[in-house]
Design a protein around this nucleic acid. Sequence first.
RNA 1: CGGGAAGUAGCUUAGCUUGGUAGAGCGCUGCGUUUGGGACGCAGAGGUCGCAGGUUCAAAUCCUGUCUUCCCGACCA
Length: 412
Amino acid sequence: MKQSLLFVPTLKEAPKDADVKSHRLMSRAGIIKQVAAGIYTYLPLGYRVIRKIEEIIREELDKIGASELLMPALQPKDLWNESGRWDKYGPELMRLTDRKDRDFCLGPTHEEVITQVVRDYVTSYKKLPLALFQIQTKFRDEMRPRFGLMRGREFIMKDAYTFSETPEDLDRWYKLFTKAYIDIFNRCGLDTKIVSSDVGQIGGDEADEFMVMSEVGEDTITYCDKCSYAANQEHSLLNTGGKCPVCDGTINTAKGIEVGNIFKLGTKYSDSMHGTFAGRDNKPQPMIMGCYGLGISRTLMASVEQHSTENGIVWPKEIAPFKVHIIPVNKKDENQLNLAYEIYNTLKSNGVEVLIDDRDERVGSKFKDADLIGIPFRVVVGKDASELKVEFSNRLKDEKELVLASEILALI
RNA sequence: CGGGAAGUAGCUUAGCUUGGUAGAGCGCUGCGUUUGGGACGCAGAGGUCGCAGGUUCAAAUCCUGUCUUCCCGACCA
């Protein structure tokens, strides 16, 4: 892609409303633009990262046998009355009426819709188990949206639901999703801790959260300094210096961003919404459900929070909007420009996502922008172009070397 | 929803105390000079001073109301 054609509106100064690092950087780097409190536009660069995260999720969920569907954001009140949540959910539920004055809400989550879908089609144990997921924009009228993409009123989420015949099968799915989540977050370059949590609004029997350790996190995690014990503080009620409930270690606390949560729902929704199937004895029994959320826009935010300095982002390889950034120093120097395009074409024809800064900017501005937008590999084509040499840097390792243009493909 | 802060050009902001022609930096347009870390000169464009009412000869400035945004808290994934 030519940078002159890519819409990357970078800013020298961050908008004053951006307070946390990731918000400042994403605003300055042309990743997102705020539209209202907790509502954002994903600009081309940001949307590329979103799609990378989504693809990783699709690959990993495909591996465990979950299939993707897409449910409506707009949902009728009737369905929410079935589960009883129309009245229980409170003002966080975005409610609206259509022209006939019928009540609807914008889905904050999709247990009701998915239960309706599955109960109407799956009527026998022979059709179980089933794992379905979607990637969709969710709506929650937060009392206080904050920290950029951290807590939005509109956000992108992957939500999955499993339907099992037995508790043992639910346990199996729960483990499969746990493993898939670990792989997804690893591939997104995020270091996560799995902590046990309260079941909250969604309800159910058991729940775990995937936390990215960060000072701007809203949750407090208690964890043991010796063993692998970790829990959300609201759940564990432990404090720093306390004794580990599992071993003889000591409890520490740290802030975390919740990027994923998984719940064993049990029969909460299949009971209230008649999600039953004919069992092996031909008697109706409720489907045993699990639900598995993963905040995609929040994962983007957490990743920037973790992989950046005040000067810019350094994307983890797998979610970087591009892999290589080529910067011709002086466009008027034919040697440089030709070599830059030669490298560009070679990389492109080898399937490498590459961005070339072909803009009529001074090189200083190009470097500053490149630092900001954080593409992991950088190729600077400058004064050594006549000898076919360029400066190659791996920004993840912060090293620079002069290499032959022909070597680049092997270095990335 | 309680407490605090802030709304002036695309972004950052000065001016407000003490009412009297709305200023700067960045960005943008044109011309020239520059060209390995956000260049320089000259000439320009761009503003319902959040909105509504009030006081006044006169309001960005004073008063009232309202909307929006951010931060802390409570709540929530």
